[in-house]
Amino acid sequence: MTPLTEQQLRASLVNATRSERQRMIVPDLASMTAADWDRLDYLGWRDRKQPLAAYVVMTLDDAPDAEPVGILLRATERTGPRRAAMCAWCEDVVETRDVQLYVARRGGAAGRKGDTIGTLICGDFRCSRNVRRRPTLAEAGRDDDGLREAIVERRVAGLRQRSRAFLDEVRRTA
């Protein structure tokens, strides 16, 4: 992922009002290295001052000059014990305890009418790290580094496809 600025993050939100963009608490971008950005398929974070607000920003095109597109998400309040669930984006079978339901208001007129869409996502937005995790022997079927690399490549491609499809669905106004 290409490094982004605070201005790009604020401008990217397709389902947020002007006041929501202004209230957004941006993560510490200065502490992120080029290597950090290279390992991200999307940038996701929780708002420190609004515990249920979260943001996801990604580029829909792999071109270096592609414009970022972002969405404002609302986490559901947790009640009762945590249950294991699979993230709909990374589909990781190991990290299943911190998966949470996030809901996004659709963009445009549909969102202004209250139309929303939800999905299960890793609560701390670790999907990029999860898909790059070394596959276990059970997942790979045999001890073959080439096979494991192919599995990681498939996981990364799947994460990108599923997260982008959700973002496209949020942007869809009809």
Results as ranks from 00 to 15, higher is better:
L4T: 02
D38Y: 02
G44P: 01
G107Y: 02
G107T: 05
M86Y: 05
R48L: 09
T17P: 07
D62Y: 00
M86K: 05
M24N: 06
L29K: 01
R154T: 09
R171W: 03
L52Y: 14
C90R: 09
L29E: 01
R134V: 07
I121S: 00
N130C: 12
M58P: 05
L167E: 06
A35M: 11
R83E: 14
E20M: 11
S19D: 15
C127D: 11
R148P: 03
D62W: 01
M32A: 10
L4Q: 08
Q7K: 14
T119L: 03
R132T: 05
R21S: 14
I151T: 05
C122G: 04
R97A: 03
N130Q: 10
R74V: 06
Y102N: 00
G114D: 05
E139R: 00
V69S: 10
R39F: 11
A63C: 01
T76K: 15
M86V: 14
A110T: 10
S12P: 08
R129D: 12
R171N: 12
G141N: 03
A157C: 02
R164A: 14
L137G: 05
A109N: 02
V99Q: 04
D62H: 04
R133M: 12
V56H: 01
Q7V: 10
T119D: 05
P64T: 06
L167Q: 04
M32V: 02
R132W: 09
A138C: 00
R83L: 11
C127G: 08
A165C: 06
R46T: 12
E77C: 13
L167R: 01
A63D: 14
V152L: 02
